[in-house]
Design a protein around this nucleic acid. Structure first.
Lengths: 333, 333
DNA sequence: ATGAAAGCGCTAACAG
DNA sequence: CTGTTAGCGCTTTCAT
């Protein structure tokens, strides 16, 4: 049906090798010949078969993005960024929801390998060292997003989590909070851990500090909701809450509303991430904003550079976060 | 490096054809032989090369999902559903953000074709008849989501938009609204149009009705915000607003808050879609919920059935919507 | 039930 | 600068 490289070769009276050369823009082709070949390609409406190219070259112009769950707005922004970069570089992206399950990730990685995928952006904290090694062996490039690890044998992009947490607490102190609690994310998640550590560093020397001011919220809205109820039962005098991410902060708000608390008068709330949800709550949420799109963008760019052989060493990139003050900590005027 | 079908053939002392047969579970293989081949595959840790399979069979076990923008929470739920179904059927999904631009869609379709993709779930209203025909010719299956068209030459999954709109208005009337406005989505978008029509059918015979109660909101939060300001300037006595989607309803809420209106006492608000955002606003939003996950799930299932040749005719599936009453229309006493 | 062999459409030495 | 040719790893007639 569709024209093949052979048809083009025949029509332009050259060998398939030469046609292949002009397809792949290999310089050593006579301009004259090139013109002839190009004309033939147009005439025949020739389009290279990407699958055949992939089989022969072991490069498929495809990358994968593995993340816990696309429904999380943080990740959907990441996806958008990665896809944009991929698209403008001639790459296609395969999306994989792992739900944070190692088993799911495992099986994804397996089929991705069988598909000759060129690289993976891994947006999850669950990646294991063995996997990294395996991918290296298979010549599949890897960039990890939002990953905290002491040993780095691959490129990592992340935001300054610990520093952000300190900024959050510092802000709450500044506006006059006398007892600040923290709702933290999943244990085992390094990002959650770093934010918790930032909080602890800021508060551990205060006389009011107690480890019972730490409550788990699982990085979900409902987790934040439940955590708040539990927290206020034990510490009715808390007047500031730093939630480890925005989703939990939303849950905090819901709980406080339900309990009839005034925000920020009775209690100030600060989240982390900077997803757009923080703008639609009432009051709007103060948050430590990560440059979400930039995180995804940078990850994709680095990955593609690696794939194209333009980048050798593995680096760790830490992007800055910024405090966005809103009504959940400061009453407008 | 990795074992190929030939290695397996050699080790199990059969031809590659036979190995291929056991890989593809073709029945005509002697159980004895089959066992031998399978043992060899295990020994060699053989894994079929999907790219090679694709080239030879023109089937890649890959589908694509084209949608306007993953950042829209409605679509991220759709993605999740499609990916889940694909995953559990051995398919991989390529994600494409079109921004609703025909040009982008066009270029995506082109590369998808070159990649021997098996099928496409198209979640957008911008698909053109020519494209449908072209895909058919290329033997690429197609299922369209949330698409309204009089002529159907492909399978379509959508919710009952017109009926949902009528339910929304009907509910607002029941709770006592005396003058109901509608904020509608992009003109040209059939879904937006159907919802608008549902509204009109319900209100056109009332004496208070006027076409100026219709305001455009572009299906965005900000659009809903601006529309509300405009609307209340012209019609300060409006006491009910039906927003064409939840995003706009959120914008409505923001605007009303800013104007100091009480909800639902001064003004009741109803959205459409049933995204989870409606649960985090204050007050929570009444909405006409579509079965979002089910929409995506059904689309993916039908697509895969088509690909596997289990489905012939093209049908239109209209899923039911449900009214979810919340505080934006009824004060929980 | 199984094997031989001809592709699928392209890339990449190697030779000239 | 260009052509020949041998794959890439698998599927699929067509025989047997």
């Amino acid at each position: 049906m569709a024209a093949t490289i052979r048809d083009v070769a025949k029509l332009s009276d050259v060998s398939v090798a030469t046609v292949s050369r002009v397809i792949n823009q290999i310089s050593t082709v006579n301009p004259e010949t090139q013109k002839r070949v190009k004309k033939a390609m147009e005439q025949l409406k020739y389009e290279p078969n990407l699958v055949a190219q992939g089989l022969a070259s072991k490069k498929t112009q495809t990358i994968a993005l593995i993340l816990p769950n696309i429904s999380n707005p943080f990740f959907s922004d990441i996806v958008r960024a990665v896809e944009d970069v991929a698209q403008s570089n001639g790459f296609t992206v395969i999306l994989c929801n792992s739900d944070g399950l190692v088993s799911k990730e495992q099986s994804y990685i397996e089929v991705l390998r069988k598909k000759y995928i060129d690289g993976i952006v891994f947006a999850s904290n669950t990646l294991r060292i063995e996997d990294i090694e395996q991918l290296k062996k298979d010549n599949i490039s890897l960039v990890v997003l939002d990953y905290s690890s002491t040993m780095e044998s691959c490129s990592i992009i992340r935001a300054k989590n610990r520093e952000g947490a300190r900024m959050a607490v510092s802000h709450l102190l500044e506006i006059g909070c006398k007892k600040i609690a923290h709702i933290y994310g999943p244990i085992g998640d390094q990002t959650a851990k770093n934010r918790l550590e930032g909080y602890e560093e800021m508060v551990h020397s205060f006389s009011w500090y107690s480890p019972t001011l730490l409550v788990p919220g699982h990085f979900t809205i409902n987790g934040g909701f439940e955590a708040t109820k539990m927290l206020l039962e034990k510490h009715p005098d808390v007047d500031g809450i730093f939630a480890g991410n925005d989703l939990m902060a939303v849950g905090v708000l819901k709980a406080l509303h339900q309990m009839g608390k005034k925000i920020p008068e009775d209690l100030a709330v600060c989240g982390f991430d900077g997803i757009y949800l923080t703008e639609i709550t009432q009051p709007e949420l103060t948050t430590i904003a990560q440059p979400i799109y930039e995180l995804g963008e940078k990850a994709a760019k680095i990955l593609i550079n690696k794939i194209n052989g333009l980048l050798e060493e593995d680096n760790v990139y830490e992007l800055d976060v910024t405090l966005i003050k809103r009504d959940s900590t400061i009453k407008a005027h």
